[in-house]
Design a protein around this nucleic acid. Structure first.
Lengths: 161, 161
DNA sequence: ACTAAAGCCTAGTAAAATGGTCGGAATAAT
DNA sequence: ATTATTCCGACCATTTTACTAGGCTTTAGT
């Protein structure tokens, strides 16, 4: 089981796409600016998201990415799985050969935990997140920041409350 | 949030202690043999477990480790916390300064997930694990293996089913 | 046709974490 | 004294993370 910035970035970027749906393709440059994630890193993450059929790309000027399915049909667990290549906590990857070809003492515990986490995250869709109050507030703040591009870099270092 | 072999090893070792409670101190060498965890690595893990008041050590020959509290009073979350120094999924470590002094889009999602995981793991005590059928079966297998020490190394490589 | 904006791809890389090893203390039972 | 054990600090190889660099391809706009 891995839950690091990688997965967090992926979910954040996908949520950004969900928030700006209907405005045509969103460029990674925009996401990079709004969410403070390195552009090249985003490219790598989106390569995986595309391979996993979560986003659809449009090349050329004015191009960018769009969600491949509607936001209610994409859940958080999928997104993390796509970039992490496994949301599994067992280590033996459910093969149960943790101890010399046999299960280790705590094998089933980690299986249960994996199910728990997966269940929680797969129960949350991008649409659910979009409708959360805290997400809407942050999204509005980001939109205001984008309106004054020259302040963007500064505000990303010293919080302009 | 980190859930890797480190935490798994710690929980496995603590469960091994719980299973052999009442037989006096258990040496790390025994645990190393039974659970297939490197002795030196166990030493490092137990240094943290001791600092976190989860185990009690006895030095000298015949020494070893014992649970500091009864097994019903030690839960899995504590053990993982002790070796990982945080069972937190947020990355900003709940300080909410993920994006230039302000919360990022998905801050609250990760807070919720952390609560979920912590709630699940803190609801499981070592005593709970000891009573599980699968744990008892594995423990018995390990006891049989310990009875024939010469076969231990071999069976840890090629499964002797 | 040209240019520029975007996606796409590969390689490299510094820093951190993981999962150890090694050597030598200190301590206590025999 | 010897020996079995915990303790402790340094070191190390490998992997992952998060990121940069650079080049190539596609395509809209002029």
């Amino acid at each position: 089981m891995r839950l690091t910035t990688k997965g967090r970035y992926a979910v954040t970027a996908m949520l950004d796409l969900a928030l700006h749906e209907g405005k045509g393709p969103i460029s990674l440059a925009d996401i990079s600016e709004r969410q403070g994630i390195s552009l090249s890193y985003l490219e790598q993450l989106f390569a995986k998201l595309r391979r996993n059929e979560l986003v659809h790309s449009v090349r050329g000027p004015g191009g960018g990415y769009q969600l491949k399915r509607e936001r209610g049909a994409i859940n958080v667990a999928e997104v993390i799985d796509a970039v992490n290549e496994s949301v599994d906590a067992t280590g033996c990857n459910k093969t149960a050969n943790c101890q010399g070809g046999d299960v280790c003492l705590t094998h089933h515990l980690w299986c249960d935990l994996s199910d728990q986490i997966h269940g929680f995250l797969s129960g949350i869709s991008l649409a659910d997140l979009v409708h959360r109050h805290d997400v809407q507030e942050v999204a509005e703040r980001q939109q205001r920041a984008m309106a004054q591009p020259e302040k963007l870099i500064a505000s990303s270092v010293a919080s302009a409350s």
